[in-house]
Amino acid sequence: MATATLPSLDEVWHWLSQVPDPEIPVLSLVDLGIVREVAWDDDTLVVTVTPTYSGCPATGIINLDIERELNARGVAKVRLERRLSPPWTTDWMSAEGREKLRAYGIAPPVDDTAADGRSLALARRLASGSNLTVACPRCGSAQTEKVSQFGSTACKASYRCLSCLEPFDYFKCI
């Protein structure tokens, strides 16, 4: 493709916005906010990706999916780069992505509620038995309780709705 014109970066972003996350397929990699940058280095497309959690087992699959998608779109040379800093945060999840999560049955992150390791606040919170309010993605009730800090994947916690009684995943703020 030496003489062909390279696809525009807007086009590349659009393609990537159609690549689903392997574990939460209603979200695209762009919705999730893990594609940090796309750029041309001569005729090589450089895609910079940040991991969600350090040990996320989907990282390898995500890289493969990106490469496969771009190859299928006619980009022959793709280079994936990992960027750790700044670390991924759920703040980067698009509004559209959050709505897709809710519709899928996963409560989206409640901003500014990430664990911060401050023990005083923690002990008080535990002593008072209160917790952050996570609305049930099925019935919308705010009467829910945390079952476990970690749900089906590291990025989610397990919750239970006290109104409709359904268990559900909550995408933790980080």
Binding site: P87, A115, L122, Q149
Partner: peptide, 22 residues
Amino acid sequence: EIAAKAVKEAAYHLERSSDLVI
């Protein structure tokens, strides 16, 4: 940069283990 990534995860670990120890 490794610490900035890991500390966010460690905060959740600490929250969980503190909670259960209590």
